[in-house]
Write a protein that binds this DNA or RNA. Structure first.
Length: 557
RNA sequence: GCGCCCGUAGCUCAAUAGGACAGAGCGUCUGACUUCGAAUCAGCAGGCUGUGGGUUCAAGUCCCGCCGGGCGCGCCA
């Protein structure tokens, strides 16, 4: 478990202020949260805090003066090399060079676990992502959804949460019915019957292909039974095919779920009915205009749960679904990843939480802005209903899973993005993911070379020799990983990972250029052994980040 | 009309719960392979952070108004 350096520095500063107050060098005031950050500029040290500027008001002293007093009372710590006061009141900390060297050993010892945090304290969190009507192939919108969700799940796991990954299969409701009807029509057409695809059905080419596949496998037997009997049987086959394809696509992106949850099961096992009773007994239900509505003081307008024709809306099954998540399965925290086009449902979901005896904060809904698809500059609508879609599979084939994951991950969920398939193909070779992977492969190559040169015995190398600026810079960059994870966790911002990965790779490549790792000179032998440990540590950290992003860490490329 | 998100280098994007001279990649230009991988490195150029006010010691970041773009506002999903 890593204790964050930034946190340790914050603790030191807090102690210093308390001590100074006790001795009367600072007046009494409540100590605020000490924010410690990594300054952008090297000359400002490794860590910095601006807290003294904020204290000026309470202490009624100049910020610089406060900073000087804090420094004078700062407890000793082995990792702190230098503390400086900078105008107009910053406190800049530089890590001790020898301590930094020793972190190479610490990283190697931690290995796969380097950067692991305990923010989550084993709290059970479920991340639900990728969920969509299983009525067609996955597209780029789903791609963004799963990349955000899966990476976030990885991050939370690394931060000490017990993470459960779930895909919600919307296999009930009106969209499913339309899917069945479409499949029936295409199936019949494949056998020469003139059955039209329903207006609100799925007009994409893939339905034709799927029907053909079913005809090839099952023959005409579904036309020999009444339609109402054929529909569910045929639909089941179609659903299986869709899910199979989805699983294949997701597997290519290294995405694997703990559970695929069927919406239909909520109706089959009685959960739905039970939840409706709970809502009714809690006074959250009103009947009017022939329909059943959800009503809550936390919601400006009532929302329909069950239509006047008796069929439930997704809102109703979503409430049951979350009852299942929280009450039946006991998750402490649930994160749903939704496209921005679902934003209108967030207030309803938040409002239903108290109705189930839960706190709204236990449910986090991450909205990511939509992906606009282009093909050579022209906008392509992603609608399964009209059929003109660029499938995720197509993009995976053209661009490759690693580049796709990296591309989709590297932006904040809050900003919408353009994805031009033509441009992506062209640029796939320039994708920064290869820059990062190359760093990893390059180190692997160095380590292979070390073996060839009979230098495989570097485990006992003396890391205290790693004092030059490129070496120190590399170690310091590696030490950022835990803080990146902390930020990504607390802000639910997985996009921070690719940026860190690039920065780490850049620091490594720069080190590599300046520092010969394996020297043939006898007098450099000890330095070589130390540097071999350094690059091995860098490999560990690069691999860790790549894995967190769900991207391969190749030994060769 | 109301609500949510966005507007930062030519392009694609960062900027750590308000912090120091706004940073990367791609692209352009200039250099660097007779020893570990040149898918690399070093460097030049590129900005009134859409715009006008406000709050603050400090604003890309917070507040208000405009302009521009995306998405919502169903007994759809």
């Amino acid at each position: 478990m890593t204790e964050l350096i930034s946190q340790q520095i914050a603790d030191l500063v807090t102690k210093a202020i308390k001590k100074a107050q006790k001795k009367g060098h600072l007046p009494a005031f409540d100590i605020p949260e000490i924010v410690v950050e990594r300054p952008k500029q090297e000359t400002h040290g490794d860590y910095s805090t601006a807290v003294c500027m904020g204290l000026a008001k309470y202490a009624r002293m100049a910020p610089v003066k406060i900073a000087e007093i804090v420094v004078a009372h700062l407890p000793k710590a082995d990792f702190v090399g230098k503390v400086e006061v900078a105008h107009p009141g910053y406190l800049n900390f530089t890590l001790d060079t020898g301590w930094v060297c020793r972190q190479v050993d610490a990283i190697l010892q931690a290995g796969e676990n380097f950067g692991r945090l305990d923010i989550g304290r084993g709290k059970r969190v479920q991340v639900e992502y990728g969920s969509a009507n299983p009525t067609g192939p996955l597209h780029m919108g789903t791609g963004r959804n799963v990349v955000i969700g899966d990476t976030l799940a990885n991050v939370l796991e690394a931060a000490g949460y017990s993470v459960h990954r779930e895909y919600y299969v919307n296999d009930a409701g009106s969209r499913m019915r339309a899917f069945y009807e479409t499949l029936y029509a295409r199936y019949a057409q494949a056998l020469g019957r003139d059955v039209p695809v329903p207006e609100d059905g799925y007009h994409g080419r893939y339905m034709v292909d799927m029907a053909a596949e079913i005809v090839a496998r099952e023959g005409a037997r579904f036309l020999e039974m009444p339609k109402e009997q054929a529909l569910p049987q045929l639909g089941k086959l179609g659903l299986e095919l869709i899910l199979k394809q989805a699983k294949e696509d997701l597997a290519r992106m290294s995405i694997h779920y703990d559970n695929w949850f069927s919406e239909q099961s909520l109706y089959d096992d009685g959960t739905f009915g039970r939840v409706m009773t709970i809502l009714r007994e809690g006074g959250y239900v009103v009947e009017k205009e022939g329909a059943i509505w959800f009503t809550s003081p936390n919601l400006p307008d009532d929302e329909v749960l069950i239509r006047s024709d008796g069929t439930p809306l997704y809102f109703a099954s979503d409430i049951s679904y979350h009852y299942n998540k929280f009450i039946l399965r006991g998750f402490d925290w649930v994160i749903d990843v939704w496209g921005a086009d679902h934003q209108g449902h967030v207030p309803g979901m938040k409002a239903m939480m108290p109705a189930l005896g839960l706190h709204p904060d236990q449910l986090t809904i991450i909205l990511y802005q939509l992906v606009t698809l282009r093909r050579g500059g022209e906008i392509v609508r992603i609608s399964k209903r009209t059929g003109d879609i660029i499938t995720l599979r197509e993009v995976l084939d053209e661009v490759g899973p690693d580049a796709v994951r990296f591309f989709l991950l590297a932006r904040t969920a809050d900003s919408q993005m353009d994805f031009d398939l033509e441009l992506a193909k062209e640029q796939s070779q320039e994708n920064p993911v290869y820059y990062v992977q190359y760093g990893h492969a390059r180190i692997a190559s160095i380590l292979r070379y070390a073996e060839e040169q009979g230098m495989a015995d570097y485990v006992g190398g003396d890391v205290s020799l790693l004092t030059t600026p490129p070496e120190q810079a590399l170690i310091r960059k590696m030490l950022e990983l835990p803080e990146v994870l902390e930020q990504a966790t607390t802000k639910l911002a997985p996009h921070l990972l690719p940026h860190y990965a690039q920065s780490l790779a850049a620091t490594f490549h720069s080190f590599y250029k300046e520092c010969r790792v394996i020297s043939s000179l006898p007098e450099d032998r000890e330095l070589s052994r130390a540097r071999l440990k350094l690059v091995l540590a860098a490999k560990v950290v690069l691999a860790r980040v790549l894995r967190l992003m769900g991207v391969a860490a190749p030994e060769r490329m």
